[in-house]
Each structure stands twice: as C-alpha cells, then as structure tokens.
Nucleic acid binder design. Structure first.
Lengths: 150, 150
DNA sequence: ATTAATGCAAAATCTTTGCACTTTC
DNA sequence: GAAAGTGCAAAGATTTTGCATTAAT
C-alpha cells in the first residue's frame, strides 16, 4: 500500500541529489523540504497547486501544514527552483519547469500543459516602455473543448 | 469640486449611448450599471480592479456596494463588454479593451499596459491537443525597472 | 548558540452568496 | 406583478502572519 518511492523510503542516491539541489539554492536541508522536493521533482515537469501538494504530501505519509507548503513553494520559487504561473484567478500554479516555455490552459479542467519554447515563434515584440526591461514573455493559449455539434 | 462628467451629471446623449450599449448586451438598465459603465467607458481603454472601481464610484458620488461592483464587472464580462486579465495572483484586472491584444505588466507597480495585437507577431503556434480548440492567445510581457547600475 | 524552519491558529485578502428590499420591464 | 438587481453582512477561499517550539548550522 505504501508507495515504493514515497518520502520515508527516500534512497541515499535520491536524497543526495535533492540535498545538493537545495544546498545549491542556498536553502537549509530540512525534512519537509526534502520530502516536498522529492514529490515535486521526481517525475519530470509538473504543475501543482499548494493544496494539491499538501494532499499529496499527506497521502505519502508526510505530516506537513499548509503554511509550510506555502512557505516552501514560495521559497523554492524565490530560489529559482519553481516558477509560479498565473492563469486562474482562484489559485496559483507552481511549475517545476523553470526553462523558458509557454502554456496551454484548459479553463474547464483547470489544467496546464507545457509548450516547449521552440514550439512558439514570437517573431516580433514591441519595444518596452522607456525605463523598463523585459523580464520574460509568457504566451498562454487558452483552450476550449471542441464542439463537434457546430 | 464635483467632476463635470461625474455620474449625476450624465448628459442625455451620453446616457443614451450607455443605455444602448447595455441593452445591446442584454442587460437591464439600472442606475449603478449606468454609472459604472460611464466610469469604465468614458475615456478610452482602461484596466481596473474591483476595488479601484468602487473607490472611483464613491469618489464620484455614487453609493454602490463592493458586491454590486463585483456583480457588475462579472456581468459586463459575461456580456462581452469587458475582459478579465489574470496577471497577478492578488487581484483581477478588468480590461475595457475587448479586441484582441496583449499586455505589458509591470509587476513592481501592479500596472498593465495594452499592446496592440499587430505589435506582436506570433508567427507559429503549436497544435492544440486533440479535442480542444484555441479560445485565445494571450501574450504577457513582464517588465522590470531598468537597472542602469549594471 | 544563533539562526532559521515548522506548525498551529488566527488574520488578511479578494470574491461570492443569502436574503430582504427595491427597481426594471 | 413577475423577474431581476442591489445592499448589507456573512461566508468562502486562498494565502500570509505571529508566535511558541523545534531543528539546522
């Protein structure tokens, strides 16, 4: 019933990788951070909400408060380990993909899908207002379910 | 001290235009709606938050509750008179520009700036996942203050 | 030892809702 | 007069904060 790679079973090698990652980001090594980092980074790129991550953490046996989940997500983001994606007024998504890329967003399902940076060609951008520099360019393609009835 | 075009002073012609606009959108004509519509649409394109609009309404002499401001903004949006822009986790912006266009966002100042659709050239888009259609494409260019110290 | 992280509950937002009352059509 | 809109306060939801306790450097 217990997941083979849930947090309690973190093997030495995985743990080492995560410790290195947190240390490189200048973060102290704590049990909650290691556990959450493992959940976030073990399987490729993910988009999570704070609530979903807490549920997942608790399901995997980690007792962690929602406040700590928020703190951790915000710290990971400040450290450059995560990116926050703002597509829905109701909740924030945290994206483990920190490379330049874009998103599909299925509003009906509150679901984000990555788009590789090179799959979109933004050929021309307007000049930034004087005194400002481009931090980053986000392309969000909002999707609807197809209507075959039409 | 009273603004010459605040709501109480809505002249007949302006009022007629707003009545027509609301009617065309299928909305009943009520005093709060006319007043808010006037504030929203009198001077070209704007980006407002619900709170800012309520403050502005009250400053112009209209007694309106925050709930009604939210209701009205949501109804206007549902009717296609406004568009909601999601760039900040903390608050929603409502944009009176309903044509296709994009945005600069100055995070430090919580300020949105329109970009004409033809000022950005999105030359190539990825294919949508099967079963979904593109609703719209949003380009958000996040800006930072220039750092001349660098 | 110092400094930072955690948990808990409470607070702070922003936004929506329920309901009595009023207004529009 | 039926249906919809409004105001108020209360409820919801997400996120942050204060503070005592615990853990990391």
């Amino acid at each position: 019933m217990t997941s083979p790679d849930s947090c309690a079973q973190l093997n030495k090698q995985t743990r080492q990788r995560l410790v290195a990652k947190l240390a490189a980001a200048g973060l102290r090594i704590t049990a909650p951070r290691l556990h959450l980092a493992h959940l976030l980074f073990r399987h490729g790129n993910r988009h999570v909400t704070a609530e979903a991550l807490r549920d997942e953490a608790q399901a995997s046996g980690l007792k962690v408060s929602q406040a700590t989940v928020y703190n951790t997500l915000n710290q990971f983001q400040a450290a450059g380990l995560l990116r926050q994606v703002q597509v829905d007024q109701a909740r924030s998504y945290f994206d483990t993909n920190i490379d330049a890329h874009h998103h599909f967003y299925v509003e009906d399902e509150a679901r984000l899908i990555d788009i590789a940076a090179d799959a979109v060609d933004v050929a021309r951008l307007p000049e930034s207002p004087a005194g400002y520099d481009v931090d980053r360019v986000e392309v969000i393609i909002r999707l609807d379910k197809s209507e075959p009835s039409k």
